[in-house]
Write a protein that binds this DNA or RNA. Sequence first.
DNA 1: GAAACCACTGAAAAGGATTACATGAGGCTT
DNA 2: AAGCCTCATGTAATCCTTTTCAGTGGTTTC
Lengths: 336, 336
Amino acid sequence: MAVSIKDVAQRAGVSVATVSRVFGNGPVSPELRERVEKAIAATGYRPNLSARRLRSQHSQTIGLMVADIRSPFFTALSRVVEDEAYRSGLRVILCNTDESAEREAMYLRLMEEERVTGLIWSPTRGSLERLADEDPPFPVVLVDRGGPVGRHDSVVLDNQQATATLVRHLHTIGRGRIVGLFGNTSSTAVDRHLGYLTATAALGLSSEAFFVPPNAEAAEREIVKVFSRPDRPDGVIASSSAILLGVVKAMRRLGLRTPDDVAIAGFDNETWSELVGPGLTVIEQPVGDIGRMAMTLLFDRLRAPKAPARKVMLSGRLIVRGSTAPVTGLVDEPVD
Amino acid sequence: MAVSIKDVAQRAGVSVATVSRVFGNGPVSPELRERVEKAIAATGYRPNLSARRLRSQHSQTIGLMVADIRSPFFTALSRVVEDEAYRSGLRVILCNTDESAEREAMYLRLMEEERVTGLIWSPTRGSLERLADEDPPFPVVLVDRGGPVGRHDSVVLDNQQATATLVRHLHTIGRGRIVGLFGNTSSTAVDRHLGYLTATAALGLSSEAFFVPPNAEAAEREIVKVFSRPDRPDGVIASSSAILLGVVKAMRRLGLRTPDDVAIAGFDNETWSELVGPGLTVIEQPVGDIGRMAMTLLFDRLRAPKAPARKVMLSGRLIVRGSTAPVTGLVDEPVD
DNA sequence: GAAACCACTGAAAAGGATTACATGAGGCTT
DNA sequence: AAGCCTCATGTAATCCTTTTCAGTGGTTTC
């Protein structure tokens, strides 16, 4: 049996309440405090967090639920969230849903059993809709995937704006037939699609959008199919880094040169983005800010449960690289 | 106040013990079981995991402690470990140490307070040595960084063998001045360095090794320095994917062509490895197997606490790509 | 027909902390 | 000197389960 607070109390010649107060910064005389601390050191006592949580009715735990931690955006997000959480004395329970509504439901139940104080969640489209009907018994902050309105706090990239920026950039370097390739599971892709449609329409460009499973292989297949048709597009916008990688692979396979034959651009700046092909033009997400803002929203919510929901939109940053370099001699507009 | 087992019992007209048995698959008559299940559904009861853990003295939780979840190897590892854990009804506590011994110690204390049933840990070199002196009060499985002997179970790549394979491969394509670039924090790098020394010696090659902080920037700086000297090496081996990226960046900056001027190779196969430059030659680690084996070792250990420690070594797979293609006209040995 | 056994069930203890409440000792005010 | 705070401390209740133990009623065994 491990050493409990009783053993420490006995050894220090005080009551268990006093030992507890030493941990909780309650009022304890310097003399007793020292005796207790000595006893703790001597016994190697470690407070039992389960007991503490049970009694104090405070789990000191939050949930983080994403599609797949291996997706670079979520990797970075989780790192930020964990850092912030530990700094505030909170534990994090990480869940990978693989975009499955069933697993989301299962993990939601788990969160309830853990009595989490809050959840940071990037839900699938289905769950996002269902979330409008019934609330979990803890505050939820949506992240990355915000949905239309908001009974819940959310923090997302300004996806429409960001995608429009990409479209306008491709137009600037003289591309007129720009196709969009979007993931078929997230609401993010819906917003990005909308931005794509709006921007192409505003510029008087044709538009053609494809929705694929959000992985490189599916994207590659789709692009190979699209570019095997007689009149090829001259630009591609990809709605995630995985999809963008698939596009690059497809270009290699088809023997098309970037940016000469096709200019390509997408989302998420990774360590390798500048080293793939001629360098990839991307929208960089402020993932650090997104994660910290999510935590801030959660803390605010805990303080004011009834306050109206807030939706925070952050803007991305366009990083221009070789994959959208202007083709010399073909373009005479100035590049901004 | 949330609904407790008492409320369910009351509503179903049974004792709390019976409700508990419904969850624990104890002996309950079909009739009562149904009444209890109805009451659970009606009340929306969720068992309180803190209370359960306190009473049953079983945390159903394991720890996973790595340097940085953003490092691709650890990202993949964490995904495997989480999957395996949830499949067995275990929670995972993830900790990022940033290679700091101080944070390792802090998180070890946290693990004790959580009463984890075990820890999967990729320790810094310092902690690895200290681990020889005193044991945490739970089983530890070392992963990726195994250390020399073993009071603890461990599962690692055969790093010496893998690095030797890289050296021999570079030699096969006609490279004779191969430098090695290794991280300066992990024991992994030590093993890889040893493999590098052994293999170059066996082939009668000169050797020159550098130890750098395990990030792309530091690696880039070091390589730029080394390659600015009069007689350039013609091959580089990097001991991690981050370092390898730094090498690629350095080559760009120096205007050196790969593989013509310098052949480069390293560790860890990522989604983007084939798309960076001419494609990167790497040793692929069986990260899925490593993670699953770590869990297996942990479960075995829980069953047999006194059994002798096991050290499992898995072998990597060489993936040859453009960064080590033979230079035409310069080499006449056959490529294997 | 008594004994042994079985399958269920409930009452109550236990697990390890926090915390409401009671107590007692000093120090102040009046 | 009585009354009243304040501060430090201890006692005991409480958080919500699981689990032990002791039935209960019914069936099988000898």
